[in-house]
Design a protein around this nucleic acid. Sequence first.
DNA 1: CTATTGATGTTATACTATAACATAACATTG
DNA 2: CAATGTTATGTTATAGTATAACATCAATAG
Lengths: 166, 166
Amino acid sequence: MLETATQSASFACKRDDHEHCIASALATAERLCAERGVRLTRLRRKVLELVWSNHRPVGAYELLEQLKSCGPAAPPTVYRALDFLQTQGLVHRLASLNAFIGCSHPQAEHTAQFLICRRCRNLAELADDGLSNAVAASARTVGFQAEEQMVEIVGLCEPCRRKGEG
Amino acid sequence: MLETATQSASFACKRDDHEHCIASALATAERLCAERGVRLTRLRRKVLELVWSNHRPVGAYELLEQLKSCGPAAPPTVYRALDFLQTQGLVHRLASLNAFIGCSHPQAEHTAQFLICRRCRNLAELADDGLSNAVAASARTVGFQAEEQMVEIVGLCEPCRRKGEG
DNA sequence: CTATTGATGTTATACTATAACATAACATTG
DNA sequence: CAATGTTATGTTATAGTATAACATCAATAG
Ligand SMILES: [Zn+2]
Ligand SMILES: [Zn+2]
Ligand SMILES: [Zn+2]
Ligand SMILES: [Zn+2]
């Protein structure tokens, strides 16, 4: 499959595909961690599964509640797992929501942009290299060397736009 | 003075100009609030002054401590003032830092981008309409209608870049 | 096996933000 | 001015987010 510069996820995922979408994310994570020689432990795997199961930006304490159903868990438990998953590029943190979301293409290095629908609360991840370059270029005009970008966009996704302002 | 699409502030402000820079921000705020028929009360004005005095992204509880030196103050005191100032476009909130900064050109409608130096912790505000349009256009490619943008860029400002990685 | 390292458990605490209700200041108007 | 409605502030409590510090456990490596 040819990959375009701009990829999106989550808005596109139908409810029916969702089990597959979780399984696929976990399989990719297993593979990447094996390749990298890092340990996707049961706990970390479980947290990643929960992140994908929610299928929308989810807070650390929400994950904690869900995690408690399979054993004891305290805040550091979930934050440590999330730190690992972020380091491995398997989840992203959304600064404007204090929430986490599974990365939809963790196999590729990318700077991501996030589209947050204010109506249905769903999220899509872009990896628009052109946009990312434009951001870096804009910073460079004032002599600033960009290293990390946080681009989070709030608005209406297509389905919600069709349904009207509601 | 001709204004270009991309404006920057804060990195450019020398320490010597800083008193003037605070006074000017307060004067502009007074004028804008008068024009709009909203009340820049003593408390709100004081909070805005503190935001500018710090001259870098500053947390609500830092402001609270500073505010306590002129009377009683609790968290809601400072958060309410900040809410007002944000609504009037006089300060911006930085989602990635949980911090606030004075807007460097509150007289004009704009979507801002923020450059955060990881070394000196200073911040510059851009208002690059071209970039803002590029962000909106990128969202539109997947049918998303952008309404609010959060663009926060971490890296090295020019002076810090010259001084080396440190 | 044992030393070393990395991962998890556990408790406490720091930091960020808002809810809820009481009081005070300000504005309108009769 | 007095009565009233409205906006702003004071005050207390609590919700929500994240990390420090230290103990224990599990997985390698020698
Ligand atoms: Zn991603
Ligand atoms: Zn939507
Ligand atoms: Zn601004
Ligand atoms: Zn710097």
